[in-house]
Amino acid sequence: MSFVEIATTDELRDGNMKMTSVSGSEILLAKVGDNYYSADNRCPHMGGNLSTGKLEGTVLTCPKHHSQFDLTDGHVIRWTDWSGLKLSIGKLLKSPRPLKTYEVKIDDDKILVDVK
Rank of each mutant, 00 (worst) to 15 (best):
E5W: 00
I6H: 13
I6W: 03
I6A: 03
T8D: 13
T8M: 06
D10P: 06
E11Y: 08
E11C: 09
L12E: 08
L12P: 00
G15M: 12
N16V: 01
N16W: 13
N16P: 05
M17H: 14
M17K: 11
K18R: 15
K18E: 02
K18F: 10
T20A: 00
T20F: 01
T20V: 08
V22L: 05
S23L: 09
I27P: 02
I27Q: 02
L28W: 09
L29C: 02
L29N: 03
A30R: 10
K31P: 09
K31R: 15
K31V: 11
K31A: 03
G33W: 07
D34Q: 12
N35T: 04
N35Q: 11
N35D: 12
N35Y: 12
N35M: 10
Y36A: 00
Y36P: 11
Y36Q: 02
Y37A: 03
Y37I: 05
S38E: 14
S38T: 00
A39K: 01
D40W: 05
N41Q: 10
C43S: 00
M46Q: 12
M46S: 14
G48E: 00
G48Y: 00
N49R: 05
N49D: 04
S51Y: 10
T52M: 14
T52C: 04
G53F: 01
L55Y: 03
E56V: 01
T58E: 06
V59T: 15
L60Y: 01
L60S: 09
T61R: 09
P63A: 10
P63M: 13
K64Q: 09
K64Y: 02
H65G: 07
H66A: 11
Q68C: 15
Q68N: 00
Q68W: 00
Q68M: 14
Q68A: 05
F69N: 10
D70Y: 14
L71E: 03
T72I: 10
D73C: 12
G74Y: 08
V76G: 06
R78Q: 00
W79V: 08
W79Y: 02
W79H: 03
W79F: 05
D81A: 13
D81S: 05
W82Y: 13
S83I: 15
S83D: 13
K86M: 00
K86Y: 08
I89S: 01
I89R: 13
I89E: 11
G90M: 14
G90E: 14
G90R: 11
K91M: 05
K91C: 10
K91Y: 07
L92Q: 04
L93C: 13
L93E: 10
K94A: 07
S95H: 03
P98S: 04
L99M: 11
K100H: 01
T101M: 11
V104M: 00
V104S: 02
V104P: 05
V104Q: 04
K105I: 08
I106H: 06
D107M: 07
D107E: 15
D108E: 15
I111C: 10
L112S: 11
V113W: 11
D114E: 08
V115W: 09
